[in-house]
Nucleic acid binder design. Structure first.
Lengths: 201, 201, 201, 201
DNA sequence: GATGAATGAGTGTTCATTCAT
DNA sequence: GATGAATGAACACTCATTCAT
């Protein structure tokens, strides 16, 4: 059944995002996506010119929030370092709760041949970002609020603490015997907890 | 070409482990595995009775180290809490360096239908483990060495800090512009760093 | 090459019926069926969801004539017993000339594991059918037109005399040295002959 | 486990006969046969030079009884016609009870390409046999004991009445709701019954 | 835009057969 | 003679993709 006007493209994209990033079904076929979206399988090719291109499309879409967030946050001079990190942790945990399998998906796809990396960040921008963080971080280290470490390690720590719990949910739930609601609450509680782990003072 | 003795089964298993867990090629076909092992495609079925059974076999094998390590470590009364965690971090980082995509692989497979969880831990054992950790953790919290948190959160933090960087390697490398050797060194450096992040004093 | 309208499904079904039931090629592969039908191999799965389901489909189709014929015939009160049998012999010989290997096929498939019997007749209907035959048969036995026998034996005789010659054709031809046309005529001649064998008077 | 001396060949042959002709498993693989015989799969090739040759071997063996029986019976001048037919019916029903699927098997195999007919009867012998029957049959027809028919039709009737019920057993059982023992008894009862159907007087 | 039919390349799997031991 | 390992061809089946309508 066709949806009004040309919202079909959006419908397909959102269905794909749900199946890929929310349900974590990496092996999902175009038929499965089409079926769940209630459209014909051929339409996926009509709009996206193939399965791989649909990947790229949904990925770019999903990255937008984080991509923009990072740049706005870390290039700003007005916001304090702790607030920057705090905002990032909040945004990133929310993003990972929304799309738990986004990174898993990307990493898995990277390991195939002929996959094009869908990240827009330029080398220059990247260097400046890390440099900004490094400056702020050095102060915190000097004040004894953060153990001595490079900016890279600090970024890795932050992202690890935010991202991993979301997609490892089935694993942790199995190991710890926690239900869905409790696990979700635990992840949300981590917003504050992670800041305390990252910063001592 | 037959291999000496009857090590072909082992050869296939190790090749599969490499492709799945080291190279992260989740979509690897039996043909690819057979080709890389230098054997006939049919042999995989001869020894493992199908692709899915090969999964289970390599998984069980790869889990052995961690599975045994965790139980030996956390059920012991003689070792101090910090040393337990330290040993676990060391073992777990080594394991993740060896097989970076093991968990990603498992999580991805869980989200398919009809997958049997290959973990041996009983609910009783799990409860006792968490209880043991909780006791030790409370002391550390009281002494101000660890921010107030549940045993579950502490475990999640520890595992996240160890596991995520290994399989997110292509992502971080792309974002930070680091080469293979440097990235590997950085992960090894984390053994000490993670302890400092987890424990303040 | 697409066929006009959407008769491809019918084309596949009829080709399969010909290969299975007319030519008696039990081992026919999907490729062989597709090739003879002039369609792509995948289409068989598109329409029938697998080889086994194609079996069931063609079988149900081929059984329809006999299935319906038997019920109409033997549940009718208006037709005399001899006419019932005569009509059945005629129909059944025609059916066996058309599809000589249908029963062989079914019996062979039954002896495999996991085969579902494609016959619709209920136990109640079966009992009533045999009872009806028994009543009429008793009269014929009393009158000395039929040797003393149970209804079951009478049915077995009738069906044996009709069905066996059709699919044992290559065997009989070899043993008796008869060509195709002559053999076909001989089977058609049996319509009258069988009645004379079954009924003496 | 090897059997004493060189009885392995016999063991394989008899196992194959059971699976093919008794259980009616036409699709049986060499692995299944080897497994049931308790021998290695390769041995089948060692003794029989391939699956098809095993077919021929077991077939020739199974035909021996009938083949010899027919010739001894119908070329003899000393035995009366009715006794000849009676003996044949008895022997043939016993043979079909022993190996119900032998003919089905043969017919199915004939319809494949490249199958060699495993029957030894020469055209001359065949003609003489039919001629002998024809002579005796004419007398019976003249005396009104048998309806007017050719020798060929008479042979077809006889064989049909004997052979069909044995391999159509699952079909008839399903249709008539009879258990194994009862069905077996019914077939044995047919020895007399068939004679009454063939001969009126 | 939208659909169902159709295709072809690929994917897991089976199996008769071969061979070194 | 006997065995288990190994092979290659064939098989059913899947699935992204194309195309006529």
């Amino acid at each position: 059944m066709p949806v009004l006007d040309a919202q079909t493209e959006k419908l397909i994209k959102e269905t794909a995002m749900r199946i890929f990033f929310v349900e974590g079904k990496l092996h999902a076929t175009t038929e499965m996506i089409a079926k769940e979206a209630g459209v014909n399988r051929g339409l996926i090719h009509y709009y996206f010119k193939g399965r791989d291109r649909l990947f790229q499309a949904v990925f770019t879409e999903a990255m937008l929030v984080v991509d923009r967030g990072i740049q706005e946050l870390f290039l700003s001079k007005k916001i304090s370092f702790r607030k920057k990190i705090g905002d990032f942790v909040e945004m990133f945990i929310d993003q990972n709760l929304k799309y738990p399998y986004m990174e898993t998906f990307l990493i898995t796809e990277i390991n195939r041949e002929g996959f094009k990396f869908p990240i827009s960040m330029t080398p220059d921008l990247r260097k400046q970002l890390l440099k900004n963080i490094e400056e702020d971080l050095k102060k915190e280290i000097k004040e004894g609020n953060v153990p001595k470490m490079s900016a890279e390690q600090f970024v890795i720590n932050t992202i690890s603490l935010c991202a991993y719990p979301a997609f490892a949910k089935p694993l942790f739930q199995q190991v710890m015997g926690i239900n869905d609601a409790a696990y979700r609450k635990m992840i949300l509680d981590r917003k504050n907890l992670i800041m305390k782990v990252l910063f001592r003072g």
